[in-house]
Design a binder for these strands. Sequence first.
DNA 1: GTCCGGTAAGTGAGTGATTACTCACCCCAG
DNA 2: CTGGGGTGAGTAATCACTCACTTACCGGAC
Lengths: 215, 215
Amino acid sequence: MKATSAISRHASQDRQASLISSAANLFAAKGFKGTTTKEIAKAAGVSEALVFKYFPTKRALYTAILAEKAPLSELLSAVEEFARKRDDHRVFTLIASYRIRPGADPTMLRLLLFSALEGHELADMFFGKQHRVFYDYLAGYIQTRIDEGAFHAIDPLLAAHAFIGMVVHHRLLHEIFDVPLHCSHKDIVSTYVELFLKGLQPSSTDKKRGLTRVR
Amino acid sequence: MKATSAISRHASQDRQASLISSAANLFAAKGFKGTTTKEIAKAAGVSEALVFKYFPTKRALYTAILAEKAPLSELLSAVEEFARKRDDHRVFTLIASYRIRPGADPTMLRLLLFSALEGHELADMFFGKQHRVFYDYLAGYIQTRIDEGAFHAIDPLLAAHAFIGMVVHHRLLHEIFDVPLHCSHKDIVSTYVELFLKGLQPSSTDKKRGLTRVR
DNA sequence: GTCCGGTAAGTGAGTGATTACTCACCCCAG
DNA sequence: CTGGGGTGAGTAATCACTCACTTACCGGAC
């Protein structure tokens, strides 16, 4: 009551943020169409009318969620450090451990999938502009290792897809389809990394021929 | 008009089937909540009221879609033939080529994902009872190859997840996220199969020790 | 202090459109 | 003339969104 002006000087921003996070959770849980503005308001503890004071439409609230989500930059810079050292295991372990964010946040995978399925622009913005960079980066790293002869000749983008596919699929099974993990996360990561790196080992014929197919 | 009674003696069954397929397409495209009964009726070329003559509720129509979808048995028996011959390449190529059905039908992946996200029982029935058998089968095959010393010691279920993950992820990117394929389907399959099989090759230490970890 | 006025935060009670679903009725083959 | 396939015109509920309105808070004028 008294300290209101000091503590919540930016009350409107707080409201906006809490609306966004409430909405993100609900959209992730039940989809855009499956979530009502009344529910969002209730979850944020305000009246439905107020939602429309902050966001002109339900859709605007939806797209606003985007701005809240962190980019991949932190992960990429961490990965780059190991990449510079040509430490394959660390590079891929790191990537697998981060489990191909959206933010390691379990709601983001659902949100992303819902967006893609429902055909919203969110999927394009999120996946197209942020996530796809990641695949390209990984493919680039694999390409340089191929050039160095550390990996055998393979389509690097396909290899990147394969690795991320293994990890993401596991996350998908676990988080979306409720398949229980039958071993620890650490075991999963190390098994996948080893399997993948072994699959990329240069074959004897490659070494002989010095083959490095470029895409 | 004239031959109606002869040709469509089972008019009601035809109607039912066309309603189911129309509904399946729409649910796959826009989700359960995103599809209206009016749209379904229009797509099937009947009045909205008729929909409710055949199915008591929208949800009943949804669950009825299940019965229409073929089980995995054909794929499994084809795979089993190669499995008996211990022809790893053929086994995995076949699996990858079938692209981990639902029926090679592109709508089924969307339908399955929507179901899982929206939390319908369809996901449980479809994935739980049909699809999961497939993972277990694959894991079983991998286990026997490990026992024979053809593959190195690895958690077989994890390996099965990894392989199917690679393929499904690719399908996901392509069909759900509209990522263009940058090489032919055949190339993708053979690359993935080779990568995977190479990753499973027994290491020299395994051979020496005759290691076959069982889960 | 206190009174004023302007402004932003917040709401209850709607609005028209859309939803899943119903019902009285029609049509026509047997 | 009867019964099943088929429909137009509803209905109550719910939806996203609006509006008239109250309350709370602020900086000054006196």
